[in-house]
Design a protein around this nucleic acid. Structure first.
Lengths: 190, 190
DNA sequence: TGTACATCAGTGAACGCGCGTTCACTGATGTAC
DNA sequence: TGTACATCAGTGAACGCGCGTTCACTGATGTAC
């Protein structure tokens, strides 16, 4: 799994990653691959699972002990932090999430839907949102998640442009989340 | 180019599309490929260009003659319409836009940035947004574009679930765009 | 504590296959004079 | 109007290569009695 992530980080796409090259990078003969996974798809699914363990940890971290006043600022901070710390996992998820591989794409889409639902549940606790319909909470959560995904995508392309642009991206993300939340008191749900 | 798009529509990813399979689908011998493109990357870039011609036409259509009252509803209608009519192009852009192929990914990211800037310029004409800083207009445009991209992504996965879910996706997209715009009078730019 | 057996990760040879690319070629269509 | 030449898309044989997968194997570690 590490060998695969390393190669993706180096610019390879999971799609054209060969079983043999993964085995090679792992310092093992091609046939040894089969001792661990039946196919590259299975490797991919294992990576999806591992990656989303990271992401769920992030959501948990954001949930507990976030003072409501600075919740947006802190959330973006945590996101930036996590992307830096677990670059490979985010890279994998972002790159494979809209790829041609149907199995992996759906696995990731499902995890993101789950993620969005959890966020919607959290949002329901905000006083302003208490009266909102479930559908509208999902809608809002979806928008926030979309913004975060786009932010991660931009960050992963950013290191080329240096840390300055990373700060810029975080600033924009924070504004976007703030804007979305700013609308909530004026939304008549249902 | 059609042969490549057809195979992508059939579930193949551009990444693992081979020169030979494209030639085969085009009813031509592999070597004939080189009469048209020097490499698969060049084919990809030509497809990026073709696809964004379609997308620019969409923006133009949305710009001209949209009565401000129903502008969001109509925009989503146009988007849904265009995705149905030019499914292959949207599929290509969405799938390749976050892929491992650096050349194509950057080409598409650049086009989307251009697209976002054009939208920002259009937004500047709204009375509510006239006083906004350029940066904030870009921020808002980025958010709207992100929402649209996510919507397209969902739509492209939807046909499996039938036309009912497509209507649902459009409804959510409309709400999300409406929510973002609802915040604008309350945003103190800069 | 010693013996017998099972499990497990890794080995290395071999296979047939589709790949990208080269080369010299063909024959139809377009252009110049 | 006729001739000579250039351009162009497509052909078909050939190459070397990396691929996924099979097979029977090895030797270390764990487990049962």
């Amino acid at each position: 799994m590490d060998a695969a992530l390393l190669q993706i980080e180096a610019g390879e796409s999971f799609e054209r990653l060969s079983l043999r090259s993964v085995a090679r990078a792992a310092g093992v003969v091609p046939t040894a691959f089969y001792r661990h996974f039946q196919s590259m798809d299975e490797l991919g699914l294992a990576l999806v699972e591992e990656s989303f363990r990271t992401l769920r940890a992030m959501l948990r971290q954001a949930r507990e002990g976030l003072p409501p006043e600075h919740i947006i600022h802190r959330s973006v901070e945590i996101l930036v932090d996590r992307v830096r710390a677990h670059r490979q996992h985010f890279l994998f998820v972002i790159r494979v999430g809209s790829t041609g591989n149907t199995v992996l794409r759906h696995a990731i889409r499902n995890e993101i839907r789950l993620f969005t639902s959890e966020l919607a549940t959290d949002l329901a606790r905000f006083p302003v949102l208490r009266e909102w319909t479930t559908e509208d909470l999902q809608m809002l959560a979806g928008m926030l998640v979309n913004t975060m995904i786009a932010t991660v995508g931009a960050m992963l392309d950013a290191p080329v442009a240096g840390p300055q642009s990373e700060i810029e991206i975080a600033r924009v993300a924070e504004k976007q989340l703030r804007l979305a939340m700013l609308a909530t008191p004026h939304w008549h749900s249902s």
